[in-house]
Structures are given as C-alpha cells and as structure tokens.
Design a protein around this nucleic acid. Structure first.
Lengths: 125, 125
DNA sequence: GCCGTTTTACTCGGATATATGCTGTCCGAGTTTACCGGG
DNA sequence: CCCGGTAAACTCGGACAGCATATATCCGAGTAAAACGGC
C-alpha cells in the first residue's frame, strides 16, 4: 500500500500555487514542468481538486489554475481524500462492524488522519 | 491506497491462532475455510509470517501452523509490515529529504504506526 | 508383534493466469484572449 | 478607430493503452505420520 503519485502531484501543486501568491491563474504546462509530469495527466488530477472546490480553473488564453477563496483552511487530509477517495484504508470482509481487528485498524488510521487534518498547506508557506 | 486483502488474512489468521490456544498446529485448510480464501493463497501469505519468525510451520501429516514462542509481543505493525513491506507510504520524487510535504506525510504516517506498534494480537484475546 | 514399505496428509516454492487500479496518452470540444483586416 | 472574424492559447472530458501489483490457481517436490503387510 502506497499513496499514489497523483496525491504527490496534487500536494505539490497546491504548495506551488500557495507559494506564488499571484492572483493570476497558472497554466498546467508550468505546473507540470515543475514536477516532470505530463500536462494532460496533471490536468486530470487537478480536475478533482476543482470539483472539491479547492482550486478554480479558468479556460481560454491566459487561463490556468488558481487557489479558491478560503484555501488557507484546506488541510492535507482534504487534498489526499480528494485524490484517493474517502473510504477507509482497511476493509474487513464478512466480519461485521464488531470485528476487533477492524476496530484497531480504524482507530490507528484515525490517528494519522487527525494529524493530516491538523496540517495545512498554508502552514508551509 | 488500501491495505491489501493479504494483510487482512494475515491479521485474522494470527487472531485465530491466538484464540485457539491449542499447542497443536492448525492446518491451512482450516484457517482458509474460516476466511473464505483458497488454502494455497493463504499458505503463500503465511509463509511471509514464518520468515519473520512470528509463526512456525510443521510439515507432514497433522502439520500446520502455530504461533511462535514470544508471540504475545507481536504488534499489529509487525504483521502489517511483514506483508506490506517496511517502506514508507509516501514517496516524494526529486524533492529531496528536505521536502516540507514529505515531512508532514512522514510524521502523520508515524502517528498511525505508533498506534499499530502499541496494539498486539494478544490484547484482543 | 516388529520392521520396512507404501499410502496419506500436509507444507513449500516456483510458474503462471487473472483482475484491478495507477499512470499516462490521444483527441475532440468548448472557452477566452489576442490578433488582424476591412470599413 | 472600431468592429467582426479568425487564429491562438488554454482547460475539460472521455476513451483508451501500458504497466505494476494484488489476487488467485496449479503443480511438482519434500516431509512426517499413519496404515499396511510380510515375517
């Protein structure tokens, strides 16, 4: 089990957008170049962030992506879940909600999420 | 990103072995049946636990798997890492060890591992 | 009843499908800006 | 100077290919206990 590269790209893109306080949108070409990833693939990833309202996209010439209003409160967990989905890391089949193993796994997972919820991109700028 | 089913099987097998205090080894057939998984596949998973010294296997008739001496101190993390490997959940390419995002991810991951290290199968019996 | 042989019940390991999800590409469509040429 | 049309610079979305890994199966080999059979 690994975090996907897509999550990595999303996090670094958010950090980059937050670092360049430019109000003008930044094209996906530029963002992709910084991370050595193809623009079309990055675009696909960023679309997920747009749908979650974390960033906004502007079509047409001089278009690109920029942070949404209220971006300062976006946590690592928000970004990760936008890419990876919100489902639990651990599936316990046929053992029901009372499965003691499941309980341990879920509580441990929750510890990580607490920390990821606490940390924001804005903290790093 | 998900924990693999193999990890689930490994954890439940450990719990089952710990619950049935029987000193006699238990055949993979029995263990597999409890979890609705094929015996040959489960065997492959359990081999990893054997290599890590958590359980021992006995060949031949009336053979099977049983807990190793000192099993009481085996943590969830031990079992999970035996199956999933010990590498970090988050890879940061080309950003070096000073990458601030990497630091946040690793520290969050560490929170989960702390909890998994604290919890043992023996606690659940 | 004893001992050697065979059968049976197991695990072990490698090789090999199959499935699933991640990564990445391609292309057509829509959108906005910049440019350009005619009046 | 203005205005309309065209080109250029973008994002968006779906379809699709390639690849890695997880999942699962198959089979031959080794191993230990039980069963058997001759003496």
């Amino acid at each position: 089990m690994k975090f996907s590269k897509a999550t990595n790209y999303a996090l670094h893109t958010m950090l980059f957008l937050a670092s360049s306080k430019n109000s003008k949108p930044i094209g996906v070409q530029v963002l992709a170049e910084k991370q050595s990833v193809s623009p079309t693939y990055l675009s696909k990833i960023l679309t997920k962030l747009v749908k979650e309202g974390m960033i906004t996209s502007v079509s047409g010439a001089n278009g690109g992506y920029s942070l949404s209003h209220g971006w300062e409160s976006i946590s690592f967990l928000d970004i990760i879940q936008a890419i990876e989905g919100k489902s639990s890391l651990f599936d316990c089949y046929d053992h029901g909600p009372e499965c003691p193993i499941r309980k341990v796994m879920l509580s441990s997972e929750e510890k990580m999420e607490e920390e990821l919820r606490r940390r924001t991109i804005a903290d790093l700028v």
